[in-house]
Design a protein around this nucleic acid. Structure first.
Lengths: 254, 254
DNA sequence: AAATATTTTTGATAAATATCATGTTGTCGC
DNA sequence: GCGACAACATGATATTTATCAAAAATATTT
């Protein structure tokens, strides 16, 4: 039995360690002297744990620093003038949040906890200060930004797929891939977005998402109980997306 | 009469200058000494001009450097296993291309010229070399990456809109905004994607895109002749998107 | 300029998805 | 455990969008 993708804050076993965290190349770059690593560890900030529904930041807020999800899950969303939410992303343990705000110091989206979540934060001032003396930190930041940009290219691809089933399949595979990259199971995933969140993210009606989940279950492509999803047939999901998903990990062929 | 957004390579008047180019903070950071600026200017590479249909790079190709569109227009796309193209982005004069490849050195998408295009390229090796002595270059790169990430957040938002007209409206406003940010007209834009490209980008059928363009024309929201589009009624387009578009330029309110 | 190919538009119909209504399941607080 | 509430599922119908077919407009070549 492999571990589930998400974790309650109390469930220490599924909390990601710094070693598996995508920010660790910033927190603990391997080539750095030990005293610097200590200093980095010291500036690492731990905001109070979030409960489901708590906001980490909101649109327009001043950026305090870069966040990394340590346990739990975060969604980002835009609110339109009628108060309607549109989910623009979700973040799993080990993933970074708020990088888009570096260039102007303000957040573009709202970020909200989907469950009890525990985060790390590197204050932006400290990054800037330490970067002066340690250019390697900036190198790592560039690396992380570039990786996140590529993830977003993938998201743009998935959201441009022409039918609802493809988009749902792409979301499931994307979640699976990201869980797997963090050392969790690729097949047993907890996607803690509500059906409404998924619908809003993919530009669909809730009922459509619900029906597609039901259909995929009937065809034995997935099983699920609530938000805990088991992927049974990766091939079929990949066929829906239309391509073997090029993972960030695997280097694509020419 | 304001200038059109795009330019033929021969049309020197509409070529963007380094001053308006988003890469210029890398090429010519204002705080740098003159000798460094000279050095940066020297490493700036000018690949051969591209004609319509020419590929700048393809999926899986080794990244040579960061590209900036100087004139013309570039689209990026994924090709699925059936050879079907899906457009994932388009790039206007002054915009950067290929930043997502920094972290693994390989391009994730194909990039193809939509018309005769002229580009600048900063070889990745030279950036790395110069960064060692001039940390300011890395700072600028972080800034540019973050900005592009925020643009992609916006794109994810737009592609998640629930109906076809909204997505087309968002595309038009996005193009307008980007043209305007480069000193071109916000209302008279040349969107040199074919209707098929637009459809593929937005997850629609060509015919649907064509009908929506026709409908918007009938309602006097836009006029167009081929790919030259004039926006007459920004308010209506914004209503379709559901929000006054938060531009990258304007700082959003809390 | 004529001929050819490509892109765009338009119409008729089929298919997919949204909406509305309602029932079911699950969750949270007590 | 029970009641109240939210999330999820399902059916019937309306609307939107895709598909197929073909014409019109535009671009490209000769």
């Amino acid at each position: 039995m492999t571990r589930a993708c998400q974790a309650k804050i109390s469930d220490i076993a599924t909390q990601i360690s710094c070693l598996q965290c995508s920010i660790n190349t910033i927190c603990f770059p391997s080539g750095l002297d030990l005293d610097i690593r200590d200093e980095l560890y010291n500036i690492l900030n731990h905001p109070p744990p979030l409960e489901r529904g708590d906001l980490l930041f909101r649109t327009g807020a001043t950026m305090k620093g870069i966040y990394a999800v340590r346990s739990g899950a975060i969604k980002t969303y835009i609110t339109d003038e009628n108060g309607q939410e549109q989910v623009t992303g979700y973040y799993l343990p080990g993933e970074l949040l708020g990088l888009g705000a570096i260039h102007n110091g303000r957040h573009f989206q709202n970020a909200e906890a989907l469950e009890s979540s525990y985060l790390c934060m590197i204050p932006v001032n400290d990054i800037n200060r330490l970067s002066k003396s340690h250019p390697q930190i900036q190198e790592q930041l560039i690396h992380l930004l570039s990786k996140q940009l590529q993830n977003h290219h993938k998201m743009v691809w998935h959201l441009g797929l022409k039918n609802a089933t493809s988009r749902v399949a792409a979301l499931l595979l994307n979640c699976s891939e990201r869980c797997h990259a963090r050392g969790f199971s690729a097949s047993e995933i907890k996607l803690n977005l509500s059906r409404q969140d998924i619908a809003s993210h993919l530009g669909l009606a809730v009922e459509t998402v619900s029906r597609i989940f039901g259909q995929l279950k009937k065809e034995n492509v997935i099983t699920f109980k609530g938000r805990q999803i088991d992927i049974l047939d990766f091939d079929t999901l990949n066929q829906h997306v239309g391509t073997k998903m090029a993972t960030t990990e695997k280097i694509p062929r020419i």
